[in-house]
Measured scan of single mutants.
Amino acid sequence: AEKTGIVNVSSSLNAREGASTSSKVIGSLSGNTKVTIVGEEGAFYKIEYKGSHGYVAKEYIKDIKDE
């Protein structure tokens, strides 16, 4: 099942092309942005936001229960 997560940073969080800190940054998400978690790979979540996919470090995403 898809989960919703909240970007848990004070400034912004980089979204990357792949599940690695050396992957190209494809965008950034500001704190408290809601994202859909579609998968996980190592220390990263694969997320969907406004129709695009990217990878973000798990430690900066807070899971919330689907309402």
Rank of each mutant, 00 (worst) to 15 (best):
Y49Q: 00
A15Q: 03
E17L: 08
K24E: 06
E40R: 03
G51D: 07
K62I: 14
E17F: 07
N8V: 12
T33Q: 10
I61M: 03
N32G: 15
G5W: 06
S11K: 12
N8F: 10
T36N: 10
Y60R: 04
H53T: 10
I61A: 01
G5Y: 06
K58W: 03
E40Q: 08
V25S: 06
S11H: 13
F44V: 02
S23A: 11
S28P: 07
S11M: 10
E67G: 12
F44I: 01
A1T: 13
V25G: 03
K50H: 09
E59F: 08
Y60T: 04
V56Q: 01
A57K: 10
L29I: 12
I47R: 00
Y60S: 07
S52G: 15
A43W: 06
K34F: 10
V9G: 10
N14K: 13
I26E: 03
F44M: 03
Y45C: 05
V56H: 00
G31I: 10
G18Q: 13
T4V: 11
G5D: 02
S30K: 14
V9I: 10
I6P: 02
V7P: 02
E67H: 12
G42K: 04
S11F: 10
E67L: 14
D63K: 09
T21N: 14
E2C: 15
Y45I: 03
T36A: 07
Y55K: 00
E41F: 10
H53A: 06
S12F: 14
A1P: 12
E40C: 09
K58F: 04
S28Y: 12
A43F: 07
E41Y: 09
D66P: 11
E48I: 15
V56W: 01
S30F: 12
V25A: 06
I47S: 00
E67A: 13
K58M: 07
E40I: 06
Y60I: 02
K24N: 07
A43R: 08
G39L: 02
S12Y: 14
D63I: 15
G5Q: 02
D66C: 14
V38P: 00
N32I: 06
I64W: 08
S23I: 03
V56K: 00
E48F: 11
K50N: 13
E59S: 08
E48Q: 11
T4G: 04
V38M: 07
Y55F: 10
V38Q: 03
E40G: 02
Y60K: 07
E40P: 01
G18F: 15
K62D: 09
I26C: 09
K62T: 14
L13F: 04
V9Y: 07
I61F: 04
S20K: 05
K24G: 06
G31R: 14
G39N: 02
K3I: 09
F44C: 06
E67V: 13
K65P: 08
S28Q: 14
I26M: 07
G18V: 06
G31A: 14
H53N: 05
N8K: 12
I47N: 02
N32Y: 11
K50I: 05
G18C: 14
S30L: 14
V7T: 06
E67Y: 12
S12G: 12
T33Y: 06
G27E: 03
E2D: 09
T21V: 12
E2I: 15
S52A: 12
V56F: 01
Y55D: 00
A15Y: 15
S30V: 12
F44T: 01
D66N: 11
G27I: 11
I6G: 02
A57L: 15
G54P: 01
A19Y: 04
S11I: 11
K50S: 07
I37F: 02
G5H: 03
E2G: 14
S22C: 13
L29G: 00
N8W: 11
K58A: 03
E67S: 13
S22V: 08
A19R: 05
E17Q: 09
I64G: 05
E41C: 14
A1E: 09
S11N: 11
F44E: 01
S30Y: 10
D66S: 11
S11V: 12
H53F: 15
E48Y: 13
V25K: 05
K62N: 09
G31T: 11
E67Q: 11
E17K: 07
L29H: 01
E59R: 13
N32C: 15
V38N: 02
V9F: 07
E48P: 03
V7D: 01
K24T: 06
S30H: 10
G31V: 10
K46M: 10
K50Q: 12
I6C: 13
G27P: 02
K24L: 07
S12I: 12
Y45F: 08
N32D: 08
R16H: 15
A15E: 01
K62F: 09
A15F: 15
N32E: 07
S23L: 04
V38I: 13
G39V: 02
E17W: 08
V35T: 00
